[in-house]
Simulated scan of single mutants.
Amino acid sequence: MTFLQRVDPPALCRPVRNLYSQVMIAPAGRTAYIAGQVALDASGELVGPGDHAAQARQAFLNVKLALEGVGATPSDLVRHNIYVVGHRPELVPVIFGAAREAYGEPWPPAASTMLGVEALGLPGWLIEVEATALLPPTKVSPGVD
């Protein structure tokens, strides 16, 4: 959305692989804080046991569904925190590739942090994604009390 401003100050290096922005500026408005999403489908079943790509795809799909639930889209994202059990460098393109599949194009280059962690909330969970989005001022959030 045009109301979000992505800034990459020239004093900082360009974002690695252009997967994120160094700074996001959002005007005053309503903000959605999305709880950490893991690879649980709508029935609560774990998708892709042992598979980082499958779990990432489901976790990012869950973020997208949460955004849709409040009248937003991935382009409204201002921040991602991505937690990865057993992180290693070769998982970066796997995880972001799965995210692109879930979000579609265009890719939202939100401010982003990826962290390797020892474990998540329950055994078998490999990926958790929490996100922050600015709700567009002209949209009304369906299903919000």
Score class of each variant (00 low, 15 high):
V70G: 04
V16E: 11
R57V: 03
S112N: 12
W125A: 00
P9H: 09
G36R: 00
V7D: 14
A35T: 05
A11Y: 12
E118L: 09
D51E: 10
S75G: 15
I25Y: 08
P74E: 07
A54Y: 01
Q37F: 02
V85H: 06
P93N: 12
K64A: 15
P49I: 04
Y83N: 05
P136S: 15
L40V: 01
G97A: 11
N62M: 03
V7S: 12
A28I: 01
L77G: 05
A54T: 02
A59C: 01
A26Y: 07
T113Q: 12
E45N: 14
E90M: 08
H80Y: 15
L12D: 08
A66W: 00
A54D: 06
P123A: 15
V7H: 15
R79A: 13
Q5H: 15
P109G: 05
I82R: 03
P106M: 08
A54E: 08
A26D: 06
L4V: 13
G86V: 01
Q5N: 13
E45P: 00
T2R: 14
R100H: 13
S43E: 13
W125Y: 08
P9D: 10
P136Q: 14
E101I: 11
E118P: 02
R17D: 13
R79I: 00
R57D: 08
F3T: 15
N18T: 03
A66C: 03
G50H: 05
I127W: 01
S141D: 10
R14C: 07
S112W: 00
A133M: 06
V47E: 06
A99G: 11
V78R: 06
E45M: 10
F60W: 05
T138N: 12
G116E: 04
